[in-house]
Each structure stands twice: as structure tokens, then as C-alpha cells.
Amino acid sequence: MSMIQIENVSKWYGDFQVLTDCGTHVNAGEVVVVCGPSGSGKSTLIRCVNGLEAIQQGRIVVNGTALAEPTTNLSKLRAQVGMVFQNFELFPHMSVTDNLTIAQVKVLGRSTEEALARGLTMLDRVGLKAQATKFPGALSGGQQQRVAIARALAMDPICMLFDEPTSALDPEMVNEVLDVMVELATEGMTMMCVTHEMGFARKVADRVIFMDHGRIVEDASKDDFFGTPRAERAQLFLSKILQH
């Protein structure tokens, strides 16, 4: 059964079409990497999956719930889908602990103690238990992003969305975040990741999707993608990215 089903999705900003007829899926337990040049619509696509962006055409179904249905409670659905952003987006006016617990308490209705225990477990998991009382501004970028991942995990999500989680990081901090993501992937978390980190894709991805100009031009298993990319644009993109 697919966890995320994307069917014939098109989206416009005014007259400008950002997504054209996109269709794909992410199965439960699968890790799918979405890549492509900047402006190709990959971030927009992943933001549509939990309804942060509305779509004008097509259908997106997450865990059996269609997003566009008027009866769908978007907030409820989003509470089940974890998301990690390029710029971390920790809440700067709250301590790390409060960042970890606020949504558990206010959205899931957990008790403060339960939320705290869960939050600290996840914080420990990303290796930052010592930072619990600090404020986000006192942490490095890599640490902030790991806290952001812990915050999402504390909600016990059924799948995780990553929107370029390492592209705002200084190079020396990229790996500490990727390590956490690799660990998650090997544990069987369902993941959809927009990223340029091809090393990560090679290591843990099941499938790779390549986007260009708002279209999905290649959707292949990892081995096929890196071995024999069919689309010319994907070949060009890969050769550029793998040069370094």
C-alpha cells in the first residue's frame, strides 16, 4: 500500500505553472529522494504533500486520506506527517524542550510529562540531550536541524518529509544531519526527501525522482537512476553534481 499517492498534480502561481501533471507514490517503509535543478518545483511538490501549498488539479492521498476533500481535517493529517525545513524553523522564543513538547501537548493532547519524556528520548536519539534547556539561537545550524528532526519525530509520525534539510548548513555540519537521516531510513521510516545529497541517495534511497521545469522526468529505482538515467536532463544534472 502506498503511504503517499500523488496523481496528476498541477499547480499554478497566477499564470505561472509550477507543477505540471506530476504523479508518483511513496510506499510504506520506502525512502524516496527527489532531486533536480533549482526552480524545478521539487520543494513545491513536497510542500503540497502535507497541504502547505494548495494544488489546482489532481489528487494527493496520504495514508488513505485525500487532502483536497472538504471533510479532511488538514491539521489532523499534518500532525501525523513529520516535516523538516531548509531553515530549521525552530520556534526561537521557546527553549529546545518547549519546541519538542508544544505540539505534542497542544495538538496531540499528551500530558506534559509524557510529552517531555518522549521529547527527551528523541533529543537523545539525535545526540543532543545536553542541549535541552538551551534556546535555538544558542545552537549551531547542524544542532538546530537535529532538534527539528527530533521535534518532528516526537509526534510519532507515520512518514517524514524533508525539504532540502542540509542546504542551509555549513559544509562541516552536513554530515551530522545526514547521519541522523540515514539511521532513520535504515530503521524503516517512510521518507520523502528533497535533497542534492547524492551520497545519501546512493546509500539509503529506494527510488530517485528527478524533476525539471515542474515535471517529473525520471522516476526510477536507485540502481537504474545512477546506472542508466534515461532522461537527458537527469544525465546532465548528475554529471554536474557528481563532478565534485
Binding site: L52, S75, M83, I102, A103, M155
Partner: peptide
């Protein structure tokens, strides 16, 4: 976006 993504209305 982050608050929405955490399920906050």
C-alpha cells in the same frame, strides 16, 4: 509553515 506542519490549526 513549521507550526502548520506540526498539526497546529
Amino acid at each position: 509553515d513549521a507550526a502548520f506542519a506540526l498539526g497546529m490549526p
